[in-house]
């Protein structure tokens, strides 16, 4: 009971602090922009801990955050091994290959308006499909190790990046292209100095969508067969053996990896497309 009361008091205090912070003159500073969501998240963790303790929920169903943190600290070695296998080997390599392939194809297609018109609707459609379903096929083609995971990621990230890049390359208006012509710039000069930079906001849109898809692809593919390491492998065996705290620890790793991945792409976007209105805020 005391846990529940503490959680309630914490909730009220955090809520009050957040309201006060947002209403204060400081509400536009970066510190407040981080404090408010962090307090919100902390409240949920405290409530979770309180619910687990006061209702005596079995750790096989829902472990307390403290138990998950404990497990996290005690098995960093294994978590790191899984992280390397799934994120660095599977997701990241697949992401790089898929993005580069999409980029090259987009630039090739862009030379023909006919192909562009034909491929955009198809690409848009395919980008909306449940492509994760190809995971079992690709696992049977490329084997259990990271190659098949990277292949799934390649297929998943290819279309969102392709569609966005093609759309971005069409962004420049006739005036700007005429200007390049008056500078006597050829196709490649125009592409390099005008059209690719102008396409960057679109490309980064695709890259950000692809960043979240990449992790999903790499983890799902591990459900269909993997060596005895990897986040997807650990999660499916963890659920089977009721070591739920380990599963949650893996989810924390997945969340951190996913957020970091997204954050890095967003950071590069900020540096590259500093000129775009959406970045000047």
């Amino acid at each position: 009971m005391s846990w529940m009361i503490f959680a309630f008091v914490f909730w009220i205090c955090a809520w009050g602090t957040n309201i006060a912070l947002v209403r204060s003159r400081l509400s536009d500073t970066t510190a407040v922009k981080y404090t408010v969501p962090i307090l919100f998240g902390l409240t949920i963790v405290v409530l979770w801990e309180a619910v687990v303790h006061s209702f005596a929920i079995s750790p096989a169903i829902l472990p307390a955050p403290s138990a998950v943190a404990d497990r996290f600290i005690n098995s960093t070695g294994m978590l790191w091994e899984d992280f390397v296998q799934t994120v660095l080997k599977g997701a990241l390599r697949g992401y790089i290959i898929g993005v580069l392939a999409a980029f090259v194809v987009a630039i090739l297609i862009d030379r023909s308006p006919f192909l562009t018109r034909g491929l955009l609707p198809i690409g848009n459609f395919v980008a909306a499909l449940p492509i994760v379903g190809v995971a079992p096929i690709l696992v049977s083609w490329f084997g259990f190790d990271w190659h098949s995971k990277a292949a799934v990621v390649v297929v998943m990230v290819f279309f969102p990046v392709l569609v966005n890049t093609v759309q971005g390359l069409r962004e420049t208006d006739a005036m700007l292209r005429d200007l390049m012509k008056t500078y006597a710039a050829g196709y490649f000069k125009t592409l390099l100095k005008l059209r690719i930079p102008a396409a960057m906001p679109f490309i980064f849109n695709g890259l950000k969508v692809a960043a979240t898809l990449a992790l999903i692809g790499a983890i799902v593919a591990e459900y269909f067969g993997s060596p005895t390491r990897g986040m997807g492998f650990r999660i499916s065996t963890g659920v089977g053996s009721l070591s739920i705290d380990l599963v949650w620890a893996e989810i924390v790793v997945a969340a951190l990896a996913g957020t970091a991945f997204y954050g890095i792409v967003a950071f590069i976007e900020k540096k590259v497309t500093f000129w775009h209105p959406s970045q000047r805020g």
């Binding site: 947002v22 922009k33 969501p37 919100f40 979240t212 893996e250």
Partner: peptide
């Protein structure tokens, strides 16, 4: 807005399939 939106974004960076068995 300030407390929900960042978490909504983070929620999408968490691979849902990791949560599915849970």
């Amino acid at each position: 807005e300030m407390s929900l939106v960042p978490w909504a974004i983070i929620s999408q960076a968490v691979p849902i399939v990791a949560l599915a068995p849970m």
